[in-house]
Structures are given as structure tokens and as C-alpha cells.
């Protein structure tokens, strides 16, 4: 996998009069993991939504490998190499786990979906889906309807769907949200495996995980980037401690 340089230039997002993002500028370098931290309402998810095309950008540009993606639709950004998982699980109910993954594989492989053969005849797609199935540890649940999976397994499926697009840039919105303690280690392991070699933006409330796997931390407050730096630097930054951790300087 090559490339995966994501650049934000002065991105603004507004919901009516409320400014959710005011002037985000940052360069996300290929193969690095960026942890986004900050209090609720700081604009972390909004930044992901702006990058993936779910909310319109009022001002500013976003570039993926020097291609301006600001005006592109959601699906076009995915095709350009951007993948994303959601905080609230979005999977295809009424289909099995394997079918879910095949849907993702077909989306990635065909611009115009084949209509002349049954889906089961596409063996390459089946293989790709099964590979990811194994990667996210759901092989034994392949034929279970997705909506009957445990919460933790649904989170894993969510990540799997994203992986099948072979994204160069990955936006992970709280991949560990709601994962029970007994499944936590497995989930963390999964995330550690998939972030390697990709440009990743990670929102996660589990600070241990964020600090452990991020190369760089962005601290967001009120729609702006308050501070950036290595986990170590951020941990010791007095401004961050006061703004984010609520400590007296």
C-alpha cells in the first residue's frame, strides 16, 4: 500500500449558527496513527464526518494524496481510498456476517455491480471476504445473521467492512465503544494489526489504547486543534492538562 497522505486546510463546519469546526489545518502523514482526543463536543466526530463527506464543509479543503476531495460524494471518497467505521454500529441487518463482508468486497471490486450471475459465483470475492473474516476473528460466526452478533463481534464486523475497501486512510470512530471487558484485549489486538501501514485517524475514549498505538496526538477543544505532539509531549503539556483534564495550571 502506497500513499495515504491526508491534508486538511483550514476546514470549517457549521451547524446553523453553531461552529462545530473552526479552522482545522493538519497534515496526516502516510502510515502514521493519529489519536484525536478532546472533550465531548470538541468536534472530533465532526472532523471525521467532514473528511468522509457526511457533513458539508463550509470553508477549507481536504486533499488525499494531493487530490482535492472536498466536493466529492461519500462513495467517491471511499473509491479514492478513504475508509471509515462508525461510532454507532452500521452493519447490514438481515444478512449473514459473510454476506455483509461480500457486500463490501463487491463494492470495492466493481463500479457497476454485475447483474448477470448469482453473487455466489464470484469466488474471488468470497475469498476476499473470508480472508477478512479470519482477520477480524469471526470465521466461526460466518453464517450467523449479523444482527444476532454480540456487541463486540458487531464492532469487529464493522471494522472488517471497512477493511475490505483496502483504504489507505482509515477513520476509526470509537472502535472500542461498548466492547465488554472480556473482549477488550482481542479488540485492541485487532486495531493494532489493522493500523499498521495505514494512515489512521482514531477517536477513542480508552486513553491507554490511544496513547499506546498513536504516533501523534491531536487535542481538540471547541472545534479547534489545541495542541499536537507525541503521546509523551501531550501528556505533559500543561495547556492540555488544564483544558482537557481540567487541572489547574
Amino acid at each position: 500500500m502506497t500513499g495515504g497522505l491526508l491534508r486538511c486546510e483550514n476546514i470549517h463546519v457549521a451547524y446553523g449558527a453553531f461552529k462545530a469546526l473552526s479552522g482545522i489545518t493538519h497534515e496526516f502523514r502516510p502510515g502514521h496513527v493519529y489519536g484525536l482526543i478532546g472533550p465531548n463536543g470538541a468536534g472530533k466526530t465532526t472532523l471525521m464526518n467532514a473528511l468522509s463527506g457526511h457533513v458539508p464543509v463550509a470553508q477549507g479543503r481536504a486533499f488525499l494524496d494531493d487530490r482535492d476531495v472536498t466536493g466529492l460524494s461519500i462513495h467517491a471518497r471511499t473509491r479514492a481510498g478513504l475508509g471509515r467505521s462508525f461510532q454507532i454500529t452500521k452493519i447490514f441487518a438481515g444478512m449473514t456476517v459473510l454476506e455483509n463482508l461480500e457486500i463490501a468486497a463487491f463494492a470495492h471490486r466493481y463500479r457497476v455491480q454485475p447483474f448477470w450471475l448469482p453473487a455466489g459465483r464470484f469466488l474471488k470475492v468470497r475469498e476476499a471476504a473470508e480472508r477478512v473474516l479470519e482477520q477480524v476473528g469471526l470465521t466461526r460466526l460466518a453464517h450467523r445473521p449479523a444482527e444476532y452478533l454480540s456487541h463486540g463481534d458487531q464492532r469487529a464486523l464493522e471494522v472488517g467492512l471497512t477493511l475490505l475497501g483496502e483504504p489507505r486512510v482509515l477513520l476509526l470512530d470509537e472502535p472500542l465503544a461498548g466492547v465488554g471487558n472480556e473482549q477488550l484485549e482481542r479488540a485492541i489486538g485487532l486495531i493494532q494489526r489493522i493500523v499498521t501501514g495505514r494512515t489512521v485517524l482514531l477517536i477513542e475514549h480508552n486513553m491507554d489504547v490511544v496513547m499506546r498505538i498513536s504516533h501523534e496526538i491531536l487535542v481538540m477543544v471547541q472545534g479547534q486543534i489545541l495542541a499536537t505532539g507525541s503521546p509523551e509531549q501531550v501528556r505533559n503539556n500543561p495547556a492540555v492538562r488544564s483544558a482537557y483534564l481540567g487541572e489547574e495550571p
Binding site: H75, R84, F86, K90, F92, A93, A107, H108, L161, G165
Partner: peptide, 10 residues
């Protein structure tokens, strides 16, 4: 089943 997810998959 899930319009947002389908768009997100491309």
C-alpha cells in the same frame, strides 16, 4: 438495510 454504510463502502 443501511444506506449510510452502503455509501461508505463505495
Amino acid at each position: 438495510a443501511n444506506e449510510v454504510r452502503a455509501a461508505q463502502l463505495g
